[in-house]
Amino acid sequence: MDWLLEIEDVCYTYPGSETPALNGLTMRVPRGKRCVLLGHNGCGKSTLFLHMNGIYAPERGVVKWKGEAFSYRRTFLSQIRQKVGLVFQDPEQQLIASTVAEDISYGLCSAGLSDDEAKRKVEQALVRFGLEHFRERPVHHLSLGQKKRVALAGVMVLEPELLLLDEPTAYLDRLHTRLLMKELERIHREEGTTIVMATHDIDLAYEWADWVFVIEDGRLALEGAPNEVFARRDVLEGLQLGVPLLFDVWEALVPSFFPETEARPRNVADLKERLARCLVD
């Protein structure tokens, strides 16, 4: 497999803290995949993200971009932050300018684009993310869902190769979670961006991901394709993460209704369809 970003034996302890946030973490992000990072609150997901775009430098270990170790020099960092886009859990943290269009333009201006070029790209991004009507709205007049969309648009406008999302669905209702997932689907399909999403919504992870990382106490506990990872019920239960509901349901149905060799359904619609087919037969 082709690795976009590699984390090798990384340790990091916050100043004043006794336990390390990352404790010898090793993981590799496969290019072009939709990855999910599962773990409890405080397991080191956010710290890991801040290592992935060079905001924190590891105390021990190396972070590599396409096989090349991070150098933490100014020019390198500004390049890496363009290639690795990070969307924070709280959009308030990354919205800087006061209107939507201005905020989206911020990254472009920092990247040294001309004003006309920046304006054109902002306009495209506004349309792509359905924000045309909010163009000149001040950021503090938006709802949380809208702020999250603006934050995502502000990052995606730079066309990063790797998109990091820290709990993107936190505090969002079902409707907005759906919309966001659709948006991510589009980004992955049309722009070929590799996505890493930190979440603790295990059902969402199962439905969406191609690749799953499970992190516990600053270490990688499990890694692999969703079917392989969620089959390790013993480990997941031990970590108190559990397995996806759909996975459980399928396991209950398998011997009597479906042959064991049949591929698992990844979403509810798929399961419904197969059940309907099974009942007709």
């Binding site: 801040l50 932050r81 924070f88 990354q94 300018a97 209107t99 269009a101 472009l108 920092s110 920046a118």
Partner: peptide, 12 residues
């Protein structure tokens, strides 16, 4: 994270 380099330039 958004590539701040000492200047908050935006286009209106």
């Amino acid at each position: 994270a958004r590539g701040f380099d000492g200047d908050l330039r935006v286009v209106a």
